[in-house]
Design a protein around this nucleic acid. Structure first.
Lengths: 208, 208
DNA sequence: GTCTATAACCTGATAGAC
DNA sequence: GTCTATCAGGTTATAGAC
């Protein structure tokens, strides 16, 4: 038995990934500090470079883990429901649950877009995650359930409604009150309810 | 007459602010490099520190200029129109024009929220910019034009729809095609149209 | 006001002992 | 696998000539 630390490679690796996710979500690839990642864990900075070639490789590993998590979540979506509205509601519901459970997803995604121009989060990932939503909208427009919408623009708008709340929570909290905690479960539930109704109302064909 | 550079303090100051805005919008306060700001201009790095005390002061100056610009834009909004829907349409229209014209606004705002936890973009700024929108929603709900909405959540959702397209353009462009330019005037016009209709449909009271 | 050094510090990454 | 020590290069900020 060693007197030192955990000696559990798998655990160490995951602990690094967890801390890295926090830091990258807060600062992006550019702003992230390896020292900050290390100090968030019981792991020294040297260990980061033992497990991952360099900062960028670690960043990619975090992105991949996040992507895999989202792909798994997609299996809970009923995207082929007969009614497009049911499929849409299911997609949005699961997406919101997912982003609520790991709130860094949103900011990692935004950083990847702004800082790295989507260098590591590419065509295939985007297509995998959002093509189903585009298809749902298309279907709903075609069968008259939804308004005459552009399916791609609408997809971006929907993801925006779901994500934006989490992205701007530190600024926008002042609209409630200065000490409001937008990650409080009750607040999140309110956001989920409001977002779903807003989105469905936004796409539905209205009665003439 | 000097042989050196411009010798025009006001022009130099503005040139620094313009370059700084670009860099801060791309990298945030943390990721921004003063050297990158300098090399974007005909201004040396030492000049930045002559005109602004340090990087953070420069950052604050950029934020203030952006804020002032938005406040001026608000004067073009018809937020007191009799019908809440007219006021809302006016708010959204002007907001979209503004963010389209200077696309860094959105990412500066997001960086300020995520990286700095809204340290420099505070309660007063947020209230000034968005309280009118909250009031419009409240009014529309009260007089039955709009659905039973939470005014603050809805405000965040609306700003999200307007802004998100610009924030994720480098990632989401793949949903159109890999070389799509989401800042192309035609694409922007499409976004504006889709966003306005999506938002209005999202809040309107539907006929029973 | 503007420039060319350069000081002082920070940060990613490695060497080498255990 | 894990740690401490440290190096090389980058980055903010200043000094001082013009």
């Amino acid at each position: 038995m060693s007197t030192k630390a955990t000696r559990d490679p798998e655990a160490t690796r995951n602990r690094i990934l967890d801390a890295a996710e926090q830091e990258f979500a807060k600062a992006g690839l550019l702003g992230a500090r390896t020292e900050a990642i290390a100090s968030k864990t019981a792991v020294t900075k040297a260990m980061l470079f033992y497990y991952f070639e360099d900062k960028e490789t670690l960043y990619k590993a975090v992105l991949e883990r996040t992507f895999a998590k989202r792909v798994r979540a997609m299996q809970r979506m009923d995207i082929n429901a007969a009614k497009a509205e049911v499929a849409l509601r299911s997609f949005v519901q699961v997406f919101l649950e997912e982003i609520s459970a790991s709130t860094h997803m949103g900011s990692m995604f935004i950083y990847e877009s702004i800082q790295n121009k989507g260098k590591y989060y590419q065509e295939i990932a985007i297509a995998t995650l959002y093509a189903p939503l585009v298809a749902i909208i298309q279907r709903g427009v075609a069968n008259g359930e939804f308004r005459k919408l552009d399916p791609v623009h609408t997809t971006v708008n929907i993801i925006g409604v779901c994500s934006f709340y989490f992205l701007v929570r530190e600024n926008m909290k002042h609209l409630w009150h200065p000490t409001a905690d937008l990650l409080d479960p009750e607040m999140i539930q309110q956001h989920i309810n409001e977002a779903i109704e807003f989105i469905l109302a936004g796409v539905r064909q209205t009665k003439k």
